[in-house]
Simulated assay, not measured.
Amino acid sequence: MTDKLLNHRAEGPASAPPLLLGPSLGTSYALWDKVAPELSVTHRVIRWDLPGHGGSAADLIGPGATVDDLAGLVLALADSLGLERFAYAGVSLGGAVGLQLALHHPERVSALAVICSSAHFNGPGPWEERAALVRREGLARLAEGANSRWFTPGFTVPGLVADHRAADPEAYAACCDALAAFDLRERLPEIAVRTLLIAGREDPATPPAHLREIADAVPGAALVELPGASHLAPAECPEAVLTVLRAHLDGVAERGMEVRREVLGDAHVDRAQARQTAFTARYQDFISRYAWGEIWTDPTLSRRERSMITLTALVAHGHYDELAMHVRAARRNGLTPQEIGAVLLQTAVYCGVPAANSAFATAQRVLAEEDGTG
Protein backbone atom coordinates (compact mmCIF):
# COMPACT_ATOMS: atom_id res chain seq x y z
CA MET A 1 0.00 0.00 0.00
CA THR A 2 1.09 3.61 -0.64
CA ASP A 3 -0.13 7.06 0.31
CA LYS A 4 -0.81 7.95 -3.34
CA LEU A 5 -4.31 8.94 -4.41
CA LEU A 6 -6.55 7.40 -7.04
CA ASN A 7 -6.17 9.00 -10.44
CA HIS A 8 -9.18 11.21 -11.10
CA ARG A 9 -10.67 13.91 -13.28
CA ALA A 10 -12.68 16.87 -11.98
CA GLU A 11 -15.23 18.74 -14.06
CA GLY A 12 -17.77 21.46 -13.31
CA PRO A 13 -17.87 24.51 -11.02
CA ALA A 14 -15.91 24.17 -7.78
CA SER A 15 -18.89 25.59 -5.86
CA ALA A 16 -21.39 23.07 -7.29
CA PRO A 17 -22.59 20.04 -5.28
CA PRO A 18 -19.97 17.27 -5.55
CA LEU A 19 -20.71 14.02 -7.37
CA LEU A 20 -18.27 11.08 -7.46
CA LEU A 21 -18.47 8.56 -10.33
CA GLY A 22 -17.04 5.06 -9.92
CA PRO A 23 -15.94 2.70 -12.74
CA SER A 24 -16.48 -0.96 -13.53
CA LEU A 25 -13.70 -3.54 -13.27
CA GLY A 26 -11.47 -3.41 -16.34
CA THR A 27 -12.45 0.13 -17.38
CA SER A 28 -11.14 3.61 -16.70
CA TYR A 29 -13.02 6.81 -15.93
CA ALA A 30 -13.56 7.04 -19.69
CA LEU A 31 -16.62 4.88 -18.97
CA TRP A 32 -18.34 8.16 -18.05
CA ASP A 33 -17.21 10.16 -21.09
CA LYS A 34 -20.73 10.55 -22.51
CA VAL A 35 -22.38 11.35 -19.18
CA ALA A 36 -19.95 13.30 -16.99
CA PRO A 37 -19.77 16.48 -19.13
CA GLU A 38 -23.54 16.88 -18.96
CA LEU A 39 -23.68 16.21 -15.23
CA SER A 40 -20.92 18.77 -14.69
CA VAL A 41 -23.28 21.58 -15.71
CA THR A 42 -24.92 21.35 -12.27
CA HIS A 43 -22.37 19.34 -10.26
CA ARG A 44 -18.70 19.20 -9.39
CA VAL A 45 -18.08 15.81 -11.02
CA ILE A 46 -15.12 13.72 -9.84
CA ARG A 47 -14.55 10.45 -11.71
CA TRP A 48 -11.82 8.10 -10.58
CA ASP A 49 -9.80 5.10 -11.78
CA LEU A 50 -9.49 1.77 -9.97
CA PRO A 51 -5.97 0.82 -8.86
CA GLY A 52 -3.93 -0.37 -11.83
CA HIS A 53 -6.56 0.98 -14.25
CA GLY A 54 -6.29 4.17 -16.29
CA GLY A 55 -3.85 6.43 -14.45
CA SER A 56 -4.12 4.95 -10.94
CA ALA A 57 -1.06 3.27 -9.41
CA ALA A 58 -1.23 -0.52 -9.25
CA ASP A 59 0.20 -0.73 -5.73
CA LEU A 60 -2.74 1.07 -4.14
CA ILE A 61 -4.13 -2.41 -3.36
CA GLY A 62 -2.70 -5.93 -3.16
CA PRO A 63 -3.77 -9.58 -2.94
CA GLY A 64 -6.74 -10.16 -0.67
CA ALA A 65 -8.08 -6.63 -1.17
CA THR A 66 -11.67 -5.87 -0.19
CA VAL A 67 -14.33 -3.49 -1.40
CA ASP A 68 -13.87 -1.70 1.92
CA ASP A 69 -10.24 -1.06 0.93
CA LEU A 70 -11.46 0.55 -2.30
CA ALA A 71 -14.02 2.59 -0.39
CA GLY A 72 -11.21 3.83 1.84
CA LEU A 73 -9.28 4.99 -1.22
CA VAL A 74 -12.35 6.87 -2.44
CA LEU A 75 -12.74 8.58 0.94
CA ALA A 76 -9.06 9.53 0.90
CA LEU A 77 -9.60 11.10 -2.52
CA ALA A 78 -12.68 12.97 -1.28
CA ASP A 79 -10.77 14.19 1.78
CA SER A 80 -7.92 15.45 -0.39
CA LEU A 81 -10.44 17.47 -2.41
CA GLY A 82 -12.15 18.86 0.69
CA LEU A 83 -15.41 17.00 0.01
CA GLU A 84 -17.07 16.24 3.33
CA ARG A 85 -20.32 15.07 1.73
CA PHE A 86 -21.04 14.03 -1.84
CA ALA A 87 -23.47 12.23 -4.12
CA TYR A 88 -22.13 8.99 -5.58
CA ALA A 89 -22.86 6.87 -8.66
CA GLY A 90 -20.94 3.74 -9.61
CA VAL A 91 -21.05 0.90 -12.13
CA SER A 92 -20.52 -2.77 -11.17
CA LEU A 93 -17.50 -2.79 -8.82
CA GLY A 94 -17.86 0.99 -8.58
CA GLY A 95 -21.48 0.44 -7.51
CA ALA A 96 -20.36 -2.02 -4.83
CA VAL A 97 -18.04 0.69 -3.50
CA GLY A 98 -21.06 3.00 -3.32
CA LEU A 99 -23.04 0.47 -1.29
CA GLN A 100 -20.08 0.06 1.05
CA LEU A 101 -19.83 3.82 1.54
CA ALA A 102 -23.56 4.20 2.12
CA LEU A 103 -23.55 1.43 4.73
CA HIS A 104 -20.41 2.34 6.67
CA HIS A 105 -20.10 6.10 6.03
CA PRO A 106 -23.67 7.38 5.54
CA GLU A 107 -22.69 10.81 6.84
CA ARG A 108 -20.50 11.25 3.74
CA VAL A 109 -23.03 10.22 1.06
CA SER A 110 -25.96 12.51 0.22
CA ALA A 111 -27.41 10.33 -2.55
CA LEU A 112 -26.46 6.99 -4.11
CA ALA A 113 -26.95 5.49 -7.57
CA VAL A 114 -25.91 1.85 -8.10
CA ILE A 115 -25.67 0.93 -11.78
CA CYS A 116 -25.45 -2.60 -13.23
CA SER A 117 -24.09 -3.90 -9.95
CA SER A 118 -25.00 -6.22 -7.08
CA ALA A 119 -24.91 -6.76 -3.33
CA HIS A 120 -23.02 -9.96 -4.15
CA PHE A 121 -21.35 -11.21 -7.33
CA ASN A 122 -22.36 -14.88 -7.47
CA GLY A 123 -19.98 -16.11 -4.81
CA PRO A 124 -16.20 -16.31 -4.57
CA GLY A 125 -15.54 -19.23 -6.93
CA PRO A 126 -15.68 -17.53 -10.35
CA TRP A 127 -13.70 -14.53 -9.10
CA GLU A 128 -11.02 -16.65 -7.51
CA GLU A 129 -10.66 -18.52 -10.79
CA ARG A 130 -10.47 -15.28 -12.77
CA ALA A 131 -7.89 -13.82 -10.37
CA ALA A 132 -5.74 -16.93 -10.74
CA LEU A 133 -6.06 -16.82 -14.54
CA VAL A 134 -5.03 -13.17 -14.73
CA ARG A 135 -2.10 -13.64 -12.38
CA ARG A 136 -0.98 -16.58 -14.49
CA GLU A 137 -1.62 -15.34 -18.03
CA GLY A 138 -2.27 -11.59 -17.90
CA LEU A 139 -5.31 -9.85 -19.38
CA ALA A 140 -5.02 -10.38 -23.12
CA ARG A 141 -7.26 -13.47 -23.32
CA LEU A 142 -9.82 -12.07 -20.89
CA ALA A 143 -10.00 -8.79 -22.81
CA GLU A 144 -10.96 -10.69 -25.97
CA GLY A 145 -14.33 -11.49 -24.38
CA ALA A 146 -14.96 -7.97 -23.07
CA ASN A 147 -17.52 -7.06 -25.72
CA SER A 148 -19.80 -10.01 -24.92
CA ARG A 149 -19.60 -9.31 -21.17
CA TRP A 150 -20.06 -5.56 -21.44
CA PHE A 151 -22.23 -4.72 -24.46
CA THR A 152 -25.18 -5.91 -26.52
CA PRO A 153 -24.26 -7.67 -29.81
CA GLY A 154 -22.81 -5.33 -32.42
CA PHE A 155 -21.94 -2.55 -29.97
CA THR A 156 -18.49 -1.74 -28.64
CA VAL A 157 -16.35 1.08 -27.30
CA PRO A 158 -12.80 0.35 -28.51
CA GLY A 159 -11.21 2.70 -25.98
CA LEU A 160 -12.73 0.84 -23.03
CA VAL A 161 -11.62 -2.52 -24.43
CA ALA A 162 -8.13 -1.07 -24.81
CA ASP A 163 -8.26 0.10 -21.17
CA HIS A 164 -9.15 -3.47 -20.16
CA ARG A 165 -6.19 -4.87 -22.04
CA ALA A 166 -3.83 -2.25 -20.55
CA ALA A 167 -4.84 -2.74 -16.91
CA ASP A 168 -2.23 -4.03 -14.49
CA PRO A 169 -2.84 -7.81 -14.00
CA GLU A 170 -1.96 -7.86 -10.30
CA ALA A 171 -4.22 -4.91 -9.49
CA TYR A 172 -7.01 -6.39 -11.63
CA ALA A 173 -6.66 -9.70 -9.77
CA ALA A 174 -6.78 -7.86 -6.43
CA CYS A 175 -10.06 -6.26 -7.55
CA CYS A 176 -11.32 -9.78 -8.33
CA ASP A 177 -10.38 -10.73 -4.76
CA ALA A 178 -12.53 -7.83 -3.55
CA LEU A 179 -15.51 -8.99 -5.61
CA ALA A 180 -15.06 -12.56 -4.40
CA ALA A 181 -15.40 -11.49 -0.77
CA PHE A 182 -18.20 -8.97 -1.24
CA ASP A 183 -21.69 -9.77 0.09
CA LEU A 184 -23.87 -7.11 1.71
CA ARG A 185 -27.23 -8.83 1.30
CA GLU A 186 -27.88 -9.21 5.03
CA ARG A 187 -27.10 -5.56 5.73
CA LEU A 188 -28.98 -3.84 2.91
CA PRO A 189 -31.92 -2.84 5.18
CA GLU A 190 -29.47 -0.75 7.22
CA ILE A 191 -28.73 1.61 4.31
CA ALA A 192 -30.48 4.93 4.94
CA VAL A 193 -29.02 6.95 2.04
CA ARG A 194 -31.49 7.89 -0.71
CA THR A 195 -30.77 5.16 -3.29
CA LEU A 196 -31.44 4.59 -6.98
CA LEU A 197 -30.78 1.29 -8.75
CA ILE A 198 -30.26 1.21 -12.54
CA ALA A 199 -30.35 -2.16 -14.30
CA GLY A 200 -29.57 -3.05 -17.91
CA ARG A 201 -32.18 -5.50 -19.18
CA GLU A 202 -29.57 -7.17 -21.42
CA ASP A 203 -26.89 -7.35 -18.72
CA PRO A 204 -25.47 -10.90 -18.39
CA ALA A 205 -23.07 -10.02 -15.56
CA THR A 206 -25.49 -8.40 -13.09
CA PRO A 207 -29.01 -9.07 -14.42
CA PRO A 208 -31.95 -6.92 -13.27
CA ALA A 209 -32.76 -9.47 -10.54
CA HIS A 210 -29.56 -8.41 -8.73
CA LEU A 211 -30.61 -4.76 -8.71
CA ARG A 212 -34.19 -5.69 -7.78
CA GLU A 213 -32.84 -7.55 -4.76
CA ILE A 214 -31.16 -4.35 -3.55
CA ALA A 215 -34.21 -2.20 -4.30
CA ASP A 216 -36.46 -4.55 -2.33
CA ALA A 217 -34.16 -4.47 0.71
CA VAL A 218 -33.00 -0.82 0.92
CA PRO A 219 -35.75 1.33 2.46
CA GLY A 220 -37.26 3.72 -0.07
CA ALA A 221 -34.96 2.68 -2.93
CA ALA A 222 -36.10 3.12 -6.54
CA LEU A 223 -35.33 0.80 -9.48
CA VAL A 224 -35.13 1.69 -13.17
CA GLU A 225 -34.57 -0.93 -15.87
CA LEU A 226 -33.06 0.28 -19.15
CA PRO A 227 -34.09 -1.59 -22.31
CA GLY A 228 -31.26 -2.24 -24.74
CA ALA A 229 -28.57 -1.77 -22.09
CA SER A 230 -25.98 -4.34 -21.11
CA HIS A 231 -23.38 -4.14 -18.34
CA LEU A 232 -21.74 -0.79 -19.15
CA ALA A 233 -24.93 1.22 -19.43
CA PRO A 234 -23.31 4.70 -19.19
CA ALA A 235 -21.30 3.91 -22.34
CA GLU A 236 -24.05 2.10 -24.27
CA CYS A 237 -27.12 4.13 -23.23
CA PRO A 238 -25.71 7.44 -21.95
CA GLU A 239 -28.83 9.54 -22.53
CA ALA A 240 -31.04 7.14 -20.58
CA VAL A 241 -28.55 6.96 -17.71
CA LEU A 242 -28.21 10.74 -17.72
CA THR A 243 -31.98 11.23 -17.56
CA VAL A 244 -32.55 8.97 -14.56
CA LEU A 245 -29.45 10.23 -12.74
CA ARG A 246 -30.55 13.84 -13.14
CA ALA A 247 -34.01 13.02 -11.80
CA HIS A 248 -32.48 11.25 -8.80
CA LEU A 249 -29.92 13.97 -8.05
CA ASP A 250 -32.51 16.72 -8.46
CA GLY A 251 -34.28 15.19 -5.49
CA VAL A 252 -31.62 16.90 -3.37
CA ALA A 253 -32.68 20.29 -4.72
CA GLU A 254 -36.37 19.46 -4.31
CA ARG A 255 -35.90 18.40 -0.69
CA GLY A 256 -33.73 21.48 -0.15
CA MET A 257 -36.51 23.72 -1.43
CA GLU A 258 -38.99 22.00 0.91
CA VAL A 259 -36.73 22.59 3.91
CA ARG A 260 -36.01 26.15 2.82
CA ARG A 261 -39.74 26.88 2.79
CA GLU A 262 -40.29 25.15 6.13
CA VAL A 263 -37.54 27.20 7.81
CA LEU A 264 -37.78 30.58 6.07
CA GLY A 265 -41.47 30.59 5.15
CA ASP A 266 -43.25 30.56 1.81
CA ALA A 267 -43.43 34.36 1.56
CA HIS A 268 -39.67 34.80 1.77
CA VAL A 269 -38.89 31.99 -0.67
CA ASP A 270 -41.54 33.20 -3.11
CA ARG A 271 -39.99 36.68 -3.09
CA ALA A 272 -36.53 35.18 -3.70
CA GLN A 273 -37.86 33.09 -6.58
CA ALA A 274 -39.69 36.07 -8.08
CA ARG A 275 -36.45 38.10 -8.08
CA GLN A 276 -34.51 35.26 -9.75
CA THR A 277 -32.93 36.10 -13.10
CA ALA A 278 -30.81 34.16 -15.56
CA PHE A 279 -27.81 35.71 -13.82
CA THR A 280 -28.81 34.50 -10.33
CA ALA A 281 -30.48 31.17 -11.27
CA ARG A 282 -27.33 29.09 -10.74
CA TYR A 283 -26.81 30.71 -7.33
CA GLN A 284 -30.41 30.02 -6.26
CA ASP A 285 -29.96 26.40 -7.36
CA PHE A 286 -26.70 26.23 -5.39
CA ILE A 287 -28.44 27.49 -2.25
CA SER A 288 -31.28 24.98 -2.59
CA ARG A 289 -28.99 22.04 -3.25
CA TYR A 290 -26.07 22.74 -0.94
CA ALA A 291 -27.22 24.87 1.98
CA TRP A 292 -30.77 23.50 2.27
CA GLY A 293 -30.60 20.13 0.51
CA GLU A 294 -27.27 19.03 2.01
CA ILE A 295 -26.55 20.91 5.24
CA TRP A 296 -29.98 21.71 6.72
CA THR A 297 -31.25 18.19 5.99
CA ASP A 298 -28.31 16.52 7.78
CA PRO A 299 -29.86 14.91 10.89
CA THR A 300 -26.65 15.25 12.95
CA LEU A 301 -27.91 18.58 14.31
CA SER A 302 -31.51 19.55 15.00
CA ARG A 303 -33.04 22.58 13.32
CA ARG A 304 -33.10 24.34 16.69
CA GLU A 305 -29.34 23.81 17.00
CA ARG A 306 -28.76 24.94 13.42
CA SER A 307 -30.76 28.11 14.08
CA MET A 308 -28.65 28.94 17.13
CA ILE A 309 -25.43 28.42 15.17
CA THR A 310 -26.73 30.49 12.28
CA LEU A 311 -27.76 33.40 14.51
CA THR A 312 -24.29 33.43 16.08
CA ALA A 313 -22.52 33.36 12.71
CA LEU A 314 -24.65 36.19 11.33
CA VAL A 315 -23.96 38.38 14.37
CA ALA A 316 -20.25 37.64 14.15
CA HIS A 317 -20.12 38.85 10.56
CA GLY A 318 -22.57 41.73 10.95
CA HIS A 319 -25.17 40.38 8.52
CA TYR A 320 -28.16 42.00 10.20
CA ASP A 321 -30.58 41.77 7.28
CA GLU A 322 -29.95 38.01 7.19
CA LEU A 323 -30.18 38.01 11.00
CA ALA A 324 -33.72 39.36 10.87
CA MET A 325 -34.72 36.59 8.47
CA HIS A 326 -33.16 33.94 10.68
CA VAL A 327 -34.73 35.28 13.88
CA ARG A 328 -38.05 34.51 12.18
CA ALA A 329 -36.67 31.13 11.13
CA ALA A 330 -35.55 30.42 14.69
CA ARG A 331 -39.09 30.97 15.93
CA ARG A 332 -40.37 28.51 13.29
CA ASN A 333 -37.74 26.05 14.44
CA GLY A 334 -39.04 26.19 18.00
CA LEU A 335 -36.78 28.70 19.76
CA THR A 336 -38.50 30.95 22.30
CA PRO A 337 -37.73 34.69 22.51
CA GLN A 338 -35.88 33.95 25.75
CA GLU A 339 -33.67 31.37 24.01
CA ILE A 340 -32.97 33.75 21.14
CA GLY A 341 -32.01 36.40 23.70
CA ALA A 342 -29.67 33.91 25.41
CA VAL A 343 -27.96 33.18 22.10
CA LEU A 344 -27.46 36.89 21.44
CA LEU A 345 -26.15 37.40 24.97
CA GLN A 346 -23.58 34.67 24.29
CA THR A 347 -22.51 36.57 21.15
CA ALA A 348 -21.82 39.64 23.30
CA VAL A 349 -19.05 37.67 25.02
CA TYR A 350 -17.46 36.16 21.92
CA CYS A 351 -18.42 38.53 19.07
CA GLY A 352 -18.34 41.84 20.94
CA VAL A 353 -20.84 44.13 22.66
CA PRO A 354 -21.34 46.49 19.64
CA ALA A 355 -22.28 43.50 17.46
CA ALA A 356 -24.67 42.25 20.13
CA ASN A 357 -26.21 45.75 20.47
CA SER A 358 -27.14 45.73 16.79
CA ALA A 359 -28.28 42.12 17.00
CA PHE A 360 -30.59 42.77 19.96
CA ALA A 361 -32.10 45.78 18.18
CA THR A 362 -32.76 43.70 15.05
CA ALA A 363 -34.17 40.76 17.00
CA GLN A 364 -36.38 42.96 19.18
CA ARG A 365 -37.91 44.56 16.07
CA VAL A 366 -38.56 41.18 14.45
CA LEU A 367 -40.02 39.62 17.58
CA ALA A 368 -42.32 42.60 18.08
CA GLU A 369 -43.51 42.23 14.47
CA GLU A 370 -44.01 38.51 14.99
CA ASP A 371 -46.09 39.14 18.13
CA GLY A 372 -48.11 41.85 16.46
CA THR A 373 -46.93 44.59 18.83
CA GLY A 374 -44.49 46.32 16.52
Rank of each mutant, 00 (worst) to 15 (best):
V45E: 04
R306A: 09
L5A: 02
A272M: 14
L335P: 06
A240S: 15
L344A: 01
L314C: 03
P219T: 03
P124H: 04
Q273L: 15
A192F: 03
T310M: 05
E129S: 12
A229Q: 07
R135M: 03
L39Y: 05
S40C: 07
E254Y: 11
A267W: 10
V218E: 01
P337D: 10
E370C: 06
P158M: 09
G251Q: 13
E236N: 10
R332S: 01
L5S: 02
D250C: 14
A57N: 06
D183Q: 02
G90S: 09
L19K: 07
G94T: 11
S117V: 08
S40L: 04
E129K: 13
H210P: 07
L73I: 11
E186L: 08
R255T: 15
T243F: 14
T277K: 06
P17F: 11
V244M: 07
H105F: 08
T152N: 03
E258M: 15
L264Q: 15
L196S: 02
C351W: 01
S40Y: 02
L367R: 01
H120Q: 15
A10F: 00
Q276T: 15
T277C: 08
A209R: 10
A131R: 04
G200T: 07
R47N: 09
N333M: 02
A132N: 05
W292R: 12
P63T: 08
R303T: 08
P208L: 01
F360I: 00
E294C: 14
S358F: 00
D69Q: 08
E170V: 14
R212D: 09
D49S: 06
P153G: 06
Q273N: 14
R165G: 09
A143R: 00
I46M: 06
N333L: 02
R304V: 05
A89N: 11
H105V: 09
A102W: 03
A272Q: 14
L133M: 07
R130Q: 07
A96C: 12
R135N: 09
G95I: 06
R331D: 09
G98S: 05
G372P: 04
D371T: 13
H317D: 09
S288Y: 09
R289M: 13
T152V: 12
A329W: 00
V218N: 02
A102D: 03
A119H: 07
G12L: 02
R282I: 10
E190W: 02
R303Q: 13
L6H: 00
T277I: 10
A58Q: 06
S358P: 01
V241K: 12
F286P: 13
T362Y: 00
L112F: 04
R47A: 12
V109W: 09
L232A: 09
G220D: 04
D250K: 13
S307A: 07
D33Q: 13
E84W: 14
L20S: 05
S24C: 11
L70M: 11
P158D: 11
A209N: 06
K4S: 09
T195P: 06
A132V: 02
H105C: 12
R365A: 11
G72Y: 08
F286G: 14
P153S: 03
A368Q: 08
D68W: 05
P158V: 10
P337A: 03
L142I: 08
R331E: 10
Q273V: 14
A342P: 01
A162R: 13
C351P: 07
L179N: 06
P63C: 01
W48M: 08
A267C: 11
D79A: 15
V41L: 13
P227D: 12
Q276D: 13
A313P: 01
V218Q: 01
G352R: 00
W48L: 13
P17Q: 12
A146V: 10
Q338T: 15
